Amino acid sequence: MKSDENFKKWVEQVNKPFIGWDFSFITETGRVKSEPIHWSYGSTALQLMKESSSMLDMGTGGGEFLSKLYPFPPHICATEGYKPNFPIAKKRLEPLGVSVFSIDEDNKLPFECEEFDLVLNQHEAYDPKEVSRILKTDGLFLTQQVGGKDCVEINHDLDASVPNDFLHWSLDYAVNELMNEGFIILKAEEAFPFQRFYDIGALIYYLKAIPWQITDFSFETYEENLYKIHRAIEEKGHYDVKQHRFMILAGKR
Rank of each mutant, 00 (worst) to 15 (best):
H123Q: 05
Y70T: 10
P163Q: 13
S54C: 08
E235G: 06
F217L: 11
M55W: 13
S24W: 06
A174W: 08
R92D: 02
Q243K: 11
S43A: 15
N180P: 03
N155A: 11
R245H: 10
V241T: 14
A250G: 13
A89R: 01
I88D: 01
M247S: 04
T44F: 05
K91V: 11
K90V: 15
K2P: 05
E115K: 07
N85T: 10
T27K: 12
S40Y: 03
H238M: 09
I233L: 06
I200N: 11
Y70K: 14
K90Q: 15
Q47G: 10
R253H: 09
K208Y: 12
G59D: 09
V146A: 13
Y227I: 07
S53Q: 05
H244Y: 10
L226N: 01
D172W: 04
E220A: 13
D172A: 07
S43N: 15
P128S: 04
E115F: 04
R133H: 04
G201S: 08
F86Q: 01
Y41A: 06
F72T: 12
E51L: 12
F194D: 09
A191E: 15
H75V: 11
Q213W: 07
A45I: 04
N155Q: 12
E28C: 03
V241Q: 12
F111E: 00
S34Y: 06
G148I: 07
F166T: 11
A160G: 11
F219S: 03
L118C: 04
L56Q: 00
